[in-house]
C-alpha cells in the first residue's frame, strides 16, 4: 500500500507540471479577467456568490476551469432562466468575446481545465472507429448510440448531440456538466476524446433515408411507429365507413 501511494505520488508529480502549463495558457490577458469579473458580478453572482464561492442555489465555480464556462455559457445553459431539474440548451446570452472574458475570470480563480484548441477537437483528425468503441461503452447509455439523447431520472435528460460543437463536446467530457460524469484527460486521453468527437460528427453526416429519422433507432422501431400510426388511421377509416347511417340519410 505504501509503495502504491508512493507510486501515485510520483505519477502525480510527473503530471502536475503539465496541467499547470495548460492552465497558464488560459489565464489570458488581465483585461479579459477584469471584463469577466464585471460580467460575472452582473449575471452570475446572484447564484454562484460574489466570489464564485457558491450559494444554496448555485455551486462553487472555483476550480471548474475555463472549459466549464465555455460549455455552460457558450451553449446558453447559463445564465439559467429558472432553477429546475434540467438546465436546457438555449440561445446564448453572451457573445464569444464575453464568454471568453467570463472563462478567463473563472479560470483565474483556481485553474481547472482549459478550453480545448481547435486542433485538439478537429473531427477530421480523429479515429472514428476507436471513438465508436469508446462512445458505445461510455456515452451511448445516456446519449443514444447515434447521439440522439435520452431520459434520466427525476425529469433530467441527456441532451442530443446533433448541434453540439466539437469544442463543447470536449468541454462537456472534461468538466461533466449537470448530471454528466467526468472523463478526465488521464482516463480518456485527449486523442481518444478527439476520436469520440470524430465518431459523433461522422455519425451525424451518415445518410439516414426513409421517413422520420427517429434518431436512427432502426427499422424495427420505425416499423412499430408505422404499425401504430398506420393501423390507427385504418381503424379510424373502418369506424367511419361502417358507422351507422342516420335513419333518413
Amino acid at each position: 500500500m505504501l509503495l502504491a501511494l508512493a507510486v501515485i505520488g510520483v505519477v502525480y508529480a510527473a503530471l502536475s507540471p503539465e496541467t499547470g502549463r495548460a492552465e497558464a495558457t488560459v489565464s489570458a490577458s488581465v483585461k479579459d479577467v477584469t471584463e469577466g469579473k464585471r460580467l460575472f458580478d452582473q449575471s452570475c453572482a446572484s447564484c454562484h456568490g460574489l466570489n464564485a464561492e457558491g450559494t444554496k442555489t448555485g455551486p462553487s465555480l472555483i476550480g471548474v476551469g475555463a472549459a466549464a464556462v465555455d460549455f455552460q455559457v457558450g451553449t446558453g445553459r447559463m445564465p439559467a432562466a429558472n432553477p429546475g431539474a434540467q438546465m436546457p440548451r438555449k440561445r446564448p446570452v453572451f457573445d464569444d468575446q464575453q464568454t471568453k472574458a467570463l472563462a478567463a475570470y473563472v479560470a483565474s480563480l483556481g485553474g481547472g481545465p482549459a478550453i480545448p484548441s481547435k486542433e485538439q477537437v478537429d473531427p477530421a483528425t480523429g479515429d472514428a472507429a476507436l471513438g465508436q468503441s469508446l462512445f458505445i461503452t461510455n456515452c451511448a447509455q445516456c446519449h443514444n448510440f447515434a447521439g440522439g439523447g435520452g431520459a434520466l431520472t427525476g425529469g433530467k435528460k441527456a441532451p442530443d448531440l446533433h448541434e453540439t460543437t466539437p469544442s463543447h463536446i470536449y468541454s462537456a467530457m472534461i468538466t461533466g456538466p449537470q448530471a454528466m460524469p467526468v472523463f478526465n484527460d488521464t482516463t480518456v486521453t485527449p486523442e481518444q476524446k478527439r476520436a469520440i468527437i470524430a465518431y459523433i460528427v461522422e455519425t451525424r453526416e451518415e445518410p439516414n433515408p426513409g421517413g422520420f429519422g427517429l434518431d436512427r433507432l432502426g427499422p424495427v422501431s420505425e416499423g412499430l411507429v408505422g404499425w401504430v400510426v398506420g393501423l390507427g388511421l385504418i381503424v379510424a377509416a373502418a369506424v367511419w365507413i361502417t358507422a351507422k347511417q342516420r335513419e333518413n340519410d
Partner: peptide, 22 residues
C-alpha cells in the same frame, strides 16, 4: 482495462470525482 482501448488504468489517473469508465 478500458473497454474499447484495452489500456489498463491507474488509480491516480482515474482521479476526478464524478468520473466513470467501463
Amino acid at each position: 482495462v478500458v473497454d474499447g482501448t484495452g489500456e489498463p488504468l491507474r488509480a491516480a489517473d482515474f482521479s476526478s470525482p464524478g468520473g466513470i469508465i467501463t
